[in-house]
Amino acid sequence: MPVKETVLKELENITGTDEVRKNLDLDLFGEKVLDSLGTVELILALSEDFSIEVTPGQIDRELWATPRKIIDYFQERVKQP
């Protein structure tokens, strides 16, 4: 499954809204669709999906503020050897 689809599937599952798919620039924290528990849940799920180590302590909230930013982050990470 492409990176974009995997991220959106997990985001949709955790936030409970398909708006994350419709609006890739949705302010996840500002719109209160994601909180700190949800962020950690998402980090763990995506870390497992992509088999790469991403830990909550590595993530700046700003880097994960929108669906597009999360997709970009993982597209970069999966390219790395």
Binding site: S36, V40, P56, G57, I59, R61
Partner: peptide, 9 residues
């Protein structure tokens, strides 16, 4: 401090 995991740790 709680809302951002990196800052929390």
């Amino acid at each position: 401090q709680i809302s951002e995991p990196k800052l929390l740790y």
